Amino acid sequence: MATIGLDKLYYAKITEDTSGNETYGDPHPLAKAMTAELSVELAEATLYADDGAAAVVKEFQSGTLTLGVDDIGVTVAQDLTGATIDGNKVLVSTSEDGGTPVAVGFRAKKANGKYRYFWLYRVKFGIPATNLTTKGESIEFSTPSIEGTVTRRNKVDGQGKHPWKAEVSEDDTGVLPATISGWYEEVYEPDYSTLETA
């Protein structure tokens, strides 16, 4: 179903243990969302046998998340990009900056008034782009955008796989209200405990 809105953009800092497995901190608002564009790259391979394709494999490789936001505050910029806030509360970016990955969550309003919710488990952002325009005869808003690389997380889920995204629509059959109401309380962890076995 088509979406007609975007809001509730959050991020959660990631802490990694010695094996690289992620633990997520509490989600915090990132900024007011204007746009979110997610593009995905797949690793593909085709095995040919008997003059035809015998097997085709397509796996997630990485993605790019581009966010258009109203403003990125200094604390969020520090968390996402590795910039530092000096003693005068000035955000200072250096050539050596390199932010640590974070989880990113948001929701998109569907045409029927319900929402589709997302968590991207590991996103590493670059420096926000700044667009400035002088004031002319008409008012033009200039807003920042920030681009991040989406990768799979290191920690495996209950099926031994490495998720990169969680997505749910609140009007899907069988979705528990607690899943939706708790979406921004913590980064969603896959739960396979109630799956029916054949």
Rank of each mutant, 00 (worst) to 15 (best):
M1G: 14
D7I: 00
L9F: 06
K13V: 12
I14W: 05
D17A: 13
D17M: 11
T18L: 08
G20H: 06
Y24D: 03
G25E: 12
G25M: 08
D26E: 06
D26W: 03
P29T: 12
P29M: 08
L30H: 08
A31N: 05
A33G: 04
M34V: 10
T35A: 03
T35R: 02
A36C: 02
L42R: 03
E44L: 08
E44G: 13
A45N: 05
D51M: 04
G52K: 07
A53T: 14
A53C: 09
A53R: 01
A54G: 05
K58Q: 06
E59W: 06
E59A: 15
S62G: 06
S62T: 12
S62L: 10
L65V: 11
V69R: 03
D71W: 05
D71I: 08
A77G: 13
A77I: 01
T81S: 12
G82M: 11
A83P: 04
I85L: 13
V90K: 15
S93Q: 13
S95Q: 13
G99A: 09
V102L: 08
V104L: 07
G105E: 09
F106S: 08
R107Y: 09
K109T: 11
K110H: 08
K114W: 09
Y115T: 01
Y117D: 06
F118Y: 15
W119Y: 12
R122N: 14
G126N: 11
I127P: 08
I127K: 14
P128L: 09
A129W: 01
A129T: 09
T130K: 02
T130D: 14
L132K: 11
T134D: 13
T134P: 01
S138H: 04
E140R: 00
P144M: 01
P144S: 00
S145H: 02
I146P: 06
V150E: 06
T151E: 06
T151R: 09
T151I: 15
R152A: 07
R153L: 05
V156D: 10
D157A: 07
D157N: 12
G158K: 01
G158P: 02
Q159N: 05
H162I: 09
W164D: 07
S169P: 05
E170S: 00
D171K: 10
D172W: 05
T173F: 06
P177C: 01
A178F: 00
I180A: 00
W183A: 04
E185A: 14
Y192R: 04
L195W: 00
E196W: 04
T197C: 04
A198K: 13
A198E: 06
